[in-house]
């Protein structure tokens, strides 16, 4: 007997979800609305409301007690009074510490992003071009460090960079001091004296760059990889066929077509690097001024929650506004390309 027996149809299956769906539909909730409502509720509860609370605190002033900030709403004489203090924001502009911290954070994040791009692009390109068998292994190696604690990985870098760390010991072992001496004897007269071993790397901006580039490199590689792996090999062959040498092909074809990956990877490195706190604290020196550390100090050392909240909100603006502008520019470019 075939399964398409017209006279004896299969018994209708019991479908409990249909009943649930009907019940929701009775109160005006379709499946579609529910699917949208779940993430919307999540974002409201865990992102928008906390953000509003932080914004509220940033408009209060510091006071002793619990909580350590003034109420926005005060009642008395039968009236409700709303007091908004803008002093925290004003202070961000008048105290050069904050401006310097923001600028330095952006500078460090920017330079780190450039280096992550310069190191990550060739790696992503190589992984995308390797055979299927190797590709997964190489991708695994990129992702593997995530399985160890972030803190441990950053701390492990000190083992490499400290005075008697791996790098300095290695340089001493290969007799690098002679190279330094030779260099200083020949070229050092111009004031570019090289310091002697051991090199001081810890508690410098250099260590912070190394730390940021090292820990955020996978965020650069992965979006670049997903972009480059889709690149049609026939386009590269077409370029070669038309007389494009490999370098020309890279700059005319590969790079422009991988721009979405470059932008995505750079954003994924740049944005978290601005607010980075752990890396400058562990690897940077006292002069490494970054907004994450300022925030920490305001919050925990000075117990100035309103000021810390203002710093956080201002950072959000510093990060979000460029992204929005960039997105707008991208949309505009795409629109003109479409209408042309």
């Amino acid at each position: 007997m075939s399964s398409f027996d017209i006279d004896n149809p299969a018994p209708r299956r019991h479908r409990p979800w249909t009943a649930v769906e009907r019940a929701f539909a009775a109160v005006g909730l379709s499946g579609r609305a529910l699917v949208i409502a779940a993430p919307a509720a999540w974002l409201t509860l865990l992102f928008l409301i906390p953000l509003a609370v932080v914004f509220g605190i940033s408009l209060a002033t510091k006071q002793f007690g619990k909580p350590p900030y003034s109420d926005l709403l005060t009642t008395g004489d039968g009236t409700v009074q709303l007091t908004l203090h803008l002093s925290n924001y004003v202070r961000l502009f008048t105290d050069s510490l904050y401006v310097a911290a923001y600028l330095n954070s952006i500078k460090i994040a920017f330079i780190s992003t450039i280096f992550a791009l310069l190191i990550g692009y060739p790696m992503a390109y190589f992984i995308a071009r390797s055979s299927d068998r190797w590709r997964n292994i190489l991708l695994m190696l990129v992702i593997l460090p995530f399985w160890t604690s972030f803190l441990l990985r950053v701390y492990a870098l000190t083992g490499f960079m400290r005075g008697n760390g791996v790098i300095n010991q290695f340089l001493e072992f290969i007799g690098f001091q002679h190279v330094i001496n030779g260099y200083n004897a020949v070229l050092g007269w111009a004031g570019w004296q090289m310091p002697s071993l051991p090199f001081v790397m810890m508690q410098t901006d250099f260590a912070v760059y190394v730390g940021i580039v090292y820990t955020y490199l996978p965020f650069m590689i992965l979006p670049l990889f997903t972009n480059l792996v889709k690149l049609d090999g026939a386009l590269l062959e077409a370029s070669a066929d038309l007389g494009g040498r490999p370098m020309r092909t890279f700059f005319s074809i590969t790079l422009p077509l991988s721009m979405p990956g470059v932008v995505a990877g750079s954003m994924l490195v740049f944005i978290p690097a601005i607010g980075e706190f752990v890396i400058p604290s562990l690897l940077g020196g006292p002069e490494t001024l970054m907004i994450g550390r300022v925030l920490w100090d305001e919050f925990f050392t000075n117990t100035n929650w309103p000021r810390a909240a203002a710093v956080a909100i201002a950072m959000l603006v510093v990060v979000v506004v460029p992204i929005m502008l960039l997105q707008k520019a991208q949309d505009a470019v795409q629109d003109t390309a479409r209408t042309k």
Partner: peptide, 10 residues
């Protein structure tokens, strides 16, 4: 010069 099956237009 070659004309590709997929055309391979940039």
């Amino acid at each position: 010069n070659m004309m590709f099956q997929s055309y391979a237009l940039f």
